[in-house]
Lab assay of single mutants.
Amino acid sequence: KELVLALYDYQEKSPREVTMKKGDILTLLNSTNKDWWKVEVNGRQGAVPAAYVKKL
């Protein structure tokens, strides 16, 4: 499985998103959308802005 690093804090704004903190390591589930990537963090799945994460 592919991992990404959170470059910034992000507070979810809808139920389809997830909150992450700078430095979090997230499991990347889907990166086909260039703006929003689906990730899993702390057992929750949701979208985060692609510009806020970097593939490891």
Rank of each mutant, 00 (worst) to 15 (best):
Leu56Thr: 06
Pro49Thr: 02
Val53Gln: 02
Asn42Leu: 08
Gly23Asp: 05
Ala50His: 02
Ser14Ala: 08
Leu29Gly: 00
Asp24Gln: 14
Met20Phe: 13
Tyr52Ser: 10
Ala47Ile: 15
Leu7Gly: 01
Ala6Tyr: 02
Gly43Ile: 03
Trp36Pro: 00
Asp9Ala: 07
Thr32Phe: 10
Leu5Cys: 12
Gln11Tyr: 14
Ser14Ile: 04
Ala6Leu: 04
Glu2Val: 14
Arg16Glu: 14
Arg16Tyr: 14
Gly23Val: 00
Lys55Gly: 04
Val39Pro: 01
Arg16Leu: 14
Leu28Val: 07
Trp37Met: 04
Ala6Glu: 01
Leu26Trp: 03
Arg16Thr: 13
Leu29His: 05
Asn33Thr: 07
Ala51Lys: 13
Ile25Glu: 03
Ser31Ala: 12
Ala50Glu: 03
Arg44Gly: 03
Lys55Asp: 03
Asp9Ser: 09
Val39Ser: 01
Lys34Gln: 12
Val53Tyr: 02
Lys21Phe: 11
Trp37Tyr: 08
Glu17Gln: 11
Lys1Asp: 09
Leu26Ile: 08
Thr19Asp: 03
Gly46Pro: 01
Val48Pro: 00
Lys21Met: 09
Asn33Ala: 09
Gln45Phe: 09
Val39Cys: 04
Lys13Cys: 12
Asp9Phe: 05
Ala47Lys: 13
Glu17Arg: 06
Lys38Trp: 15
Ser31Leu: 05
Ile25Asp: 00
Glu12Asn: 08
Tyr52Met: 13
Tyr52Thr: 07
Val41Phe: 15
Arg44Thr: 07
Tyr8Thr: 08
Gly46Val: 09
Glu17Asn: 06
Asn42Val: 05
Gln45Ser: 12
Leu28Pro: 00
Tyr52Asn: 05
Lys34Ile: 10
Asn42His: 10
Gln11Leu: 13
Tyr8His: 11
Asn30Met: 08
Leu26Ser: 01
Leu26Cys: 11
Ile25Phe: 06
Leu5Pro: 00
Leu26Tyr: 11
Ser31Arg: 10
Arg16Ala: 13
Lys34Asn: 12
Val41Asn: 13
Gln45Arg: 12
Leu7Pro: 00
Val18Gly: 02
Leu56Ile: 14
Lys34Met: 10
Trp36Ala: 03
Lys54Arg: 13
Leu5Asn: 01
Gly23Lys: 02
Trp37Asn: 01
Val53Arg: 01
Tyr52Cys: 14
Val39His: 01
Tyr52Arg: 06
Thr19Arg: 06
Lys21Gly: 04
Thr27Trp: 13
Arg44His: 07
Trp36Ile: 04
Lys54His: 10
Asp9Gln: 03
Lys13Ile: 07
Trp36Gln: 02
Asp24Lys: 03
Gly43Trp: 04
Tyr8Trp: 11
Glu2Met: 14
Leu26Asp: 00
Lys22Phe: 05
Lys13Ala: 11
Pro15Glu: 12
Arg16Met: 14
Ser31Pro: 07
Tyr8Ala: 11
Glu17Phe: 07
Asn42Gln: 09
Gln45Ala: 12
Asn42Trp: 08
Met20Glu: 01
Asp35Pro: 02
Asp24Trp: 13
Ala50Met: 05
Asp24His: 04
Leu26Gly: 08
Lys13Thr: 13
Val41Lys: 15
Tyr8Gln: 13
Glu40His: 05
Ile25His: 04
Leu7Ala: 03
Arg16Ser: 14
Lys38Pro: 00
Met20Ser: 01
Lys38Gly: 08
Gly46Asp: 00
Thr27Phe: 13
Lys22Cys: 08
Lys55Arg: 13
Pro49Ala: 02
Val48Met: 01
Gly23Glu: 01
Ala6Cys: 13
Leu3Tyr: 15
Asn33Lys: 08
Gln11Ile: 14
Arg16Asn: 15
Pro49Asn: 03
Trp37Phe: 08
Leu26Asn: 00
Asp24Ser: 07
Glu12His: 09
Lys38Val: 15
Arg44Met: 07
Arg16Asp: 15
Trp37Leu: 06
Arg44Asp: 03
Trp37Thr: 03
Met20Val: 10
Val48Phe: 02
Thr32Met: 12
Gly23Tyr: 05
Glu17Asp: 05
Val53Phe: 06
Ala47Trp: 15
Lys38Thr: 15
Gly43Val: 02
Lys34Arg: 12
Val53Cys: 14
Asn30Pro: 03
Asn33Phe: 07
Lys22Met: 08
Lys22Pro: 03
Leu28Lys: 01
Lys1Ile: 13
Ser14Met: 06
Gly46Cys: 07
Glu40Ile: 09
Lys34Val: 11
Ala6Val: 10
Thr27Ala: 09
Ala6Gln: 00
Leu28Ile: 05
Gly43Glu: 06
Tyr10Arg: 02
Met20Ala: 02
Glu17Met: 06
Ala6Thr: 03
Asp35Phe: 15
Lys21His: 10
Thr19Trp: 05
Ile25Lys: 04
Asp35Thr: 14
Val4Thr: 01
Lys21Leu: 08
Ala51His: 12
Pro15Gly: 10
Thr32Cys: 13
Ser14Arg: 07
Glu12Asp: 05
Val39Met: 01
Trp36Gly: 01
Lys55Ala: 09
Glu2Thr: 14
Ala51Thr: 11
Gln45Lys: 10
Lys22Thr: 07
Gly43Asn: 07
Asp35Tyr: 15
Leu26Arg: 01
Arg16Ile: 11
Val48Trp: 02
Gln45Cys: 13
Asn42Cys: 12
Thr27Cys: 12
Lys34Ser: 12
Lys1Ser: 11
Val39Asp: 01
Lys34Asp: 12
Thr32Ala: 12
Lys34Pro: 14
Lys1Asn: 11
Leu5His: 04
Asp35His: 14
Arg44Phe: 06
Val18Ser: 01
Asp35Asn: 13
Lys34Leu: 10
Arg44Asn: 06
Gln45Pro: 07
Gln11Glu: 14
Lys13Gln: 14
Lys38Ser: 13
Asp24Phe: 06
Lys55Glu: 06
Leu29Ser: 04
Gln11Asp: 14
Lys54Pro: 02
Tyr10Ile: 00
Lys38Asn: 12
Leu5Val: 15
Asn33Pro: 06
Leu5Tyr: 12
Asp24Cys: 08
Asn33Leu: 08
Glu2Phe: 13
Lys38Ala: 12
Leu3His: 09
Val4Leu: 12
Leu56Lys: 03
Tyr10Asp: 00
Tyr10Glu: 00
Lys54Asp: 06
Ala47His: 15
Asp24Leu: 05
